[in-house]
Design a protein around this nucleic acid. Structure first.
Lengths: 208, 208, 208, 208
DNA sequence: GATGAATGAGAATTCATTCAT
DNA sequence: GATGAATGAATTCTCATTCAT
């Protein structure tokens, strides 16, 4: 008792959830509104009650899912840049990975569709913002690149994990056995490597 | 030497070229066969004379564009794994970047469409093969991840370069000025960072 | 009695009606969805709201038109086989001929298209079922053939009637005048001949 | 020695043969010129050297395959009509069945496509001519129908034979076992039944 | 006698979207 | 909050046909 009816209907939230799931699994263009509606047990027209367009659903996704990233950005801006803060940004980014994975996958694998969407641009801006927080002010191109790679490491780990499950790959390199890793181990490894990479920032590097 | 390239079906080659250009610029699903045909000054049906389906065009693209990568793989397999060979793989990969950029972009940004395509799988297999050559036999998950990030660095540099041209981004981090960099400088920097990353392989790393 | 036919989706029924008309008059493959839609005054897409595919329309046709045949089959199975029941099957089959003619024509003249369709197979199964009811249990091949010819006689009469209207035919047999017959007379004659044929079943036949 | 090069090339004859095979097996509209060309090991364009259009191939088929029927018609016209001649027509028609089966099947199952073709009309005219020869001059509608059913019996036997091979049919009539029959037995039975039917001509029939 | 390259017309199908109820 | 019915615009693909070589 005393439970308040959640602001904006429950259906709206379910649409967002299912849409993100399908968009990230099959791609934005390959997911039709009918498919989303079917999964929800409603009609297509119902979706239009909650969202003006298909693109608008993407907006809804970002709105409801990107909050943790925004908080991270806000936190980052409040800190003065130090190596410790930089490391902490990476750690916090890695921490939320499990929930954020579909969102990031969606954005990485659907660039062509998202490029023109306002929601897509907003999301990219967030990522760029994170990159800047990681490398700090006054960084050169190389450091910016290091920061970006550091952040990307997190999702890439999941991609690699997924690939390792496909045995056919071996025909290209012979029978080098690939280690079995759990999802949790993968994320931990990712954090580790990501930290390594971001720590390359501002180091004197060896000559090639 | 002296081999004359038989000019049979110049059209087929032009289809491949235009298709790659459009697929990488606008995305696979957002590029219609009409668009490709128009750009070539032929009818849609002409495309179907040369390729059985739209998917088959992707196959044609891989076939004609992935040769340098295959050569790199072949070369890599002939060498015993050493840190020097590893570095050389990265350097050679970076070297062909300018021509290969559209192909890589196409494959990174159109995963949902390419996932089911045989051509898409072949290409991913090639990338995984490269990853394995970079980290060498018997590597653990972390080293595999390092190898992959190292290779990804090359394209990511171009992505970053492209983003930096968009001024709106700044609203999220304030007015930190972003350094102006040419494409050539970007690729050079990418090679540099990529080498750094791949040299993390097998190093004793600091604790987090 | 007094059951009101719910008028929900009058359009669906109209599609089925027009489709059967066109399919039987021009053939399944020569009838495009555009043609059906035009005749209905709707767009092609409207057809797809009611039927998943063109083939599905055939299913719809069978579903709505084959009921009388099913009833006949049901009735036939309830009776023990006797010559009288056999004759009555033929009579009842002939009776519904006028409404059923387009359906039967459609199925006889579009075998190649219908062979793979589930709906086509269902319909053939019904006809075979009727054949078996006519010849009764334990019949040999000849009786099965007699039963089939008996049933086919009904539609064949309409085919013959139609042919007789074409005067060019005569060049092959000279000017033998062909009797003028009405559609009703034709069906009556057909029933008569059909009964004759089915009565050949199980008779001792003369040697050739 | 002394073998004369067949009039009109060998390829032309092969086209006709393959086309008839495919048209009768899959249907006229479902058989593309590419398919025919592929089966012959030539290109589509080669077909156009021998035939002006796809329809023209049908003409070629009739021309080369219908000769036996024409001879039968010629023979029939030379005889005065008697019951013996009538029976002999049926017997001769049945005799050539094995070779003629594809042609008849083609014409029976592709009416919509053949209706407008001159070649299709010619063929129908031949069948009508045969019908008239069977029932003789001055026959009424019923006798014409009997004559037609008699002739149709021959092909129908093959249709029935084919259906009996499909076990799923049983669901409609229960497990009445269907006798196993060879193709030769089927044709013989067909001739038998056909003769029975044509002997109904001009008989005083029982009242229904 | 035949091919390679191309075309024009049209087909089935899909999809985001709209709107009266 | 939602549905049923429909649309318009596009898409991929197929096919008979043509013609220079």
């Amino acid at each position: 008792m005393g439970t308040t009816q959640s602001p904006r209907s429950d259906t709206r939230a379910r649409i967002v959830a299912i849409a993100l799931e399908l968009f990230s699994a099959q791609g934005y263009e390959r997911t039709s509104l009918r498919e989303i509606a079917d999964r929800l047990g409603v009609t297509k027209a119902a979706l239009y009650y909650h969202f003006k367009t298909k693109e608008d659903i993407v907006h809804g996704i970002v709105e409801t899912t990107a909050a943790p990233i925004d908080e991270l950005i806000v936190w980052g801006r409040e800190q003065p840049w130090t190596p410790e803060v930089r490391d902490e940004l990476i750690r916090r980014f890695a921490a939320g990975m499990n929930e954020r994975a579909p969102l990031l996958r969606f954005f990485q694998e659907n660039q062509p569709a998202l490029r023109d969407l306002p929601a897509g641009q907003e999301f990219r801006d967030r990522m760029i913002a994170l990159v800047r927080l990681v490398h700090g002010p006054g960084a050169g191109f190389e450091d910016r690149l290091r920061a970006m790679m550091s952040l990307f490491t997190i999702n890439s780990a999941l991609f690699l994990l997924y690939q390792d499950k496909r045995p056919e790959v071996d025909r290209y390199v012979g029978d080098i056995p690939v280690p079995e890793v759990t999802r949790e181990e993968a994320i931990e490894a990712a954090q580790h490597v990501a930290l390594e990479i971001c720590r390359l920032i501002d180091r004197p590097a060896p000559t090639d």
